[in-house]
């Protein structure tokens, strides 16, 4: 900085006297943050809720993701879990770590790994997916999973938001899973495995950072998966009343 100041002094003297030779040294290269890719991060809990089923099952459920990175490459951690409150056990617990790059104006591709560590057997999968915004404002997240043992499955998440007002928002979600091979140990049959549909009415209480909601969720198992569940003595269909909050920070 003192260097700059002396240059200024020199140029000032020069402008009074000798010539107007303003210097070359200060033709600097831009190494400021502005010239670097903008790095950003965010954490969002799309769902953070308590569920109460039509047969008195109580669950604590979350579905969240955190990202860090630039426009060109992000690392994203996705986590989702269902905790059985009475049995004190995780019905589901999935964690994904993926890298994400843009592939079109509205879509990103993702690749990474998924670890399932619920009560019962664990699973590790490779993940390949696309996520983005489809025409007519459908948020889409579609993933293909291949387990260590070679079992493959696919999952589609779709979400649509209806704005009653700019603060009262009804969001409709659909989550469907299809398996291309059976994984009996974890109760997955070939074909359409399950769907989860939800309707949640939220109110943006603090910006978009804290939006409490109430809603209903319907879970259903299909085909061979339903048969496996019945054989275990479990149900194949559940209705839940939910209360929770969408959180972003």
């Amino acid at each position: 900085m003192s260097c700059i100041r002396s240059i200024v002094a020199v140029s000032f003297l020069a402008s009074i006297g000798v010539s107007t030779a303003v210097t070359a040294q200060e033709m600097i290269s831009d190494t400021t943050a502005r010239k670097q890719p903008l790095t950003t991060w965010g954490v969002q809990f799309e769902e953070f809720e308590y569920r109460y089923s039509d047969d008195d099952e109580e669950l604590g459920v979350w579905n969240a993701d955190a990202f860090y990175g630039t426009d060109d490459f992000k690392v994203r951690l996705l986590t989702t879990g269902e905790y059985e409150i009475e049995e004190q056990a995780y019905e589901t617990l999935e964690n994904q770590l993926v890298g994400q790059i843009p592939i079109s104006k509205f879509f990103d591709a993702k690749a990474g790994v998924r670890f399932d560590t619920p009560e019962g057997p664990d699973r590790t999968y490779a993940v390949l997916g696309v996520a983005g915004l489809a025409p007519q404002w459908f948020e889409i997240d579609a993933n293909l999973y291949v387990s260590k043992d070679g079992d493959t499955s696919a999952e589609l998440d779709a979400e649509y938001e209806l704005l009653f007002t700019n603060y009262w928002i009804l969001s409709a979600t659909l989550d469907a899973t299809v398996a291309f091979s059976e994984d009996e140990e974890i109760g997955v049959g070939k074909g359409l495995v399950s769907t989860e549909t939800g309707l949640r009415l939220s109110y943006d209480l603090i910006d978009r950072a804290f939006s409490p909601y109430v809603g209903v969720v319907h879970e259903r198992k299909y085909g061979d998966t339903a048969d496996l569940a019945k054989a275990e003595g479990g149900g194949t269909e559940d209705w839940f009343a939910v209360i929770g909050a969408r959180i972003a920070f």
Binding site: T32, R34, K35
Partner: peptide, 16 residues
């Protein structure tokens, strides 16, 4: 003069 324009990385390094 451009070195008085006050844009870090373009006019000057900035003020510490």
């Amino acid at each position: 003069p451009f070195n008085q324009d006050g844009v870090p990385g373009i006019s000057f390094p900035g003020i510490k």
